[in-house]
């Protein structure tokens, strides 16, 4: 089995932390992984993406071919749409609904929603508001991971939880708790 995931967002939103947790879980589950990420100039508030490939078989290319991504996980709605040519026929989009507007021209809310209505499998949530309500405003990205968790299939929920704890351990117990809380909230959102 393989899972090809595109993570997207705006530089500084924390997509690489999602990749780090998945990477930790994959390594500890003996699942092969390749994860290409963006460093350098575009990290300064520009569009960023990471190609994350999981498989129980060999992975050759670090990049996902067109039409093969099982999932687009995005911290920002317009950035989710940037990678549509990579999405597979049955692929899903899991995205924050809240635009991050740091450019002079940004599509209207209406046109954005119209684009998402054209797509078959979209799951959206105002993760920033949810994280604030949970008292963990900096952990919104883990809500997204929670929403995606059961679709990753190759990695068990428990392995994702324990990997999340390991990844954030050095930042202290409170941060681990915040992130776990957000992860669970995302997971519950999914099952509704």
């Amino acid at each position: 089995m393989k899972k090809d995931i595109i993570l997207s967002g705006v530089g500084g939103q924390g997509i690489l932390s999602i990749a780090t947790v998945i990477g930790e879980a994959a390594t500890r589950s003996n699942i092969n992984l390749k994860q290409a990420e963006v460093h350098g100039m575009s990290q300064r508030g520009g569009d960023v993406q990471s190609n994350l490939r999981l498989s129980d078989d060999d992975i050759h290319s670090d990049l996902i071919p067109y039409g093969e991504a099982d999932m687009i996980i995005s911290m920002e709605p317009m950035e989710a749409l940037r990678y549509l040519p990579y999405l597979s026929k049955d692929g899903c989009i899991i995205t924050s609904s809240k635009p991050f507007v740091n450019i002079p021209v940004y599509p209207s809310e209406e046109s954005l929603q119209a684009e998402f209505r054209k797509l078959p499998n979209v799951q959206m949530a105002d993760i920033e508001q949810m994280a604030k309500d949970l008292g963990a405003p900096k952990s919104a990205n883990m809500i997204l991971l929670g929403m995606a968790a059961s679709k990753i299939e190759l990695l068990s929920l428990d392995k994702l939880r324990s990997s999340l704890s390991r990844v954030f351990a050095r930042k202290g117990e409170k941060i681990v708790e915040d992130n776990l809380k957000c992860f669970e909230a995302g997971l519950n959102l999914k099952s509704k």
Partner: peptide
């Protein structure tokens, strides 16, 4: 042939990097 099932969205705007 590799194929795309979904065309690029028509409403995308470029998001170049910028000074912090």
């Amino acid at each position: 042939e590799t194929k795309s099932y979904f065309q690029p969205s028509g409403i995308l705007e470029a998001r170049p990097p910028q000074l912090c």
